[in-house]
């Protein structure tokens, strides 16, 4: 670098030094500003290796998240299915409950049927007349029966209280006339009750019986409590 010793003109040297200073200082300042103002953490300014590391990391995280998402989605599907199953089961149970309530007598019901009115004639109406009637109605296929507005259930009892005076049904005292309503096939009910000789109408001697077939018979629900104390469901194996 320093082999030659040439005497250069002072003016030329001055100009050259001036230019060199301009170039050096301007470039240095530019670099200073760039370094100062550049955000090293910004993704555009990261070096390739850093970018690679970051990319790998994000990829991993993305995959993890994807996995989690899938898991959650699967769980959601499962829950949905469960809910649907439950809904179906609930519907079934609801239907069954309604049917049971209908059968047991816990709901007001209506339908075609007959109304049988018993009144005292030569003799008073006795409990066995009513029992006989209920029995015969059931034989004829009655689905629901009531006596003077009291629903007749499997455990309903009908007994005499005193002599020809009144009858007790489920602890409620009834008096003549007894209006027995039954829901079922009205023609079949009427036919069975009116059978020659063996029908209830023929057998009831001494009391007044009238049978009317109706298109709409309304029977109220059972008003008392239905307690089960002793029986339990036997599990079939």
């Amino acid at each position: 670098m320093k082999k030659f010793k040439i005497k250069a003109d002072v003016t030329v040297v001055t100009i050259v030094v001036f230019l060199v200073c301009i170039v050096l200082v301007s470039v240095m300042l530019m670099q200073f500003r760039t370094v100062e103002q550049t955000d090293i953490t910004a993704i555009e300014n990261m070096r390739e290796s850093e970018l690679r590391t970051a990319l790998a990391e994000w990829k991993n995280r993305y995959e993890d998240m994807n996995k989690q998402l899938e898991d959650v989605n699967a769980r959601i599907t499962e829950y949905r299915k469960n809910i649907e199953d439950n809904e179906v089961a609930a519907d079934l149970i609801e239907e069954e409950l309604q049917e049971s309530n209908l059968l047991v007598g816990k709901t007001d019901v209506y339908g075609e049927g007959v109304t049988v009115t018993l009144n005292n004639g030569d003799m008073g109406v006795q409990a066995y007349d009513l029992i006989d009637l209920v029995n015969e109605l059931r034989y004829a296929g009655a689905e629901a029966i009531s006596i003077n507005g009291i629903r007749v259930l499997p455990m309903t009892y009908i007994v005499d209280m005193g002599e020809y005076t009144y009858i007790m049904v489920d602890l409620q005292r009834l008096e003549a006339p007894y209006v027995v309503k039954a829901i079922g096939d009205k023609e079949e009910l009427t036919r069975v009750l009116n059978l020659d000789g063996s029908g209830f109408v023929d057998r009831a001697v001494g009391i007044k019986v009238s049978v009317t077939a109706e298109n709409r018979v309304e029977i109220p629900k059972y008003n008392g409590e239905l307690d089960v104390q002793y029986m339990q469901e036997a599990v079939q194996e």
């Binding site: 060199v20 200073c21 301009i22 200082v25 300042l29 530019m30 200073f32 500003r33």
Partner: peptide
């Protein structure tokens, strides 16, 4: 002078 001019240009 060169430093000053260079600084101005660089800024």
């Amino acid at each position: 002078l060169g430093c000053i001019v260079g600084a101005l240009i660089g800024v």
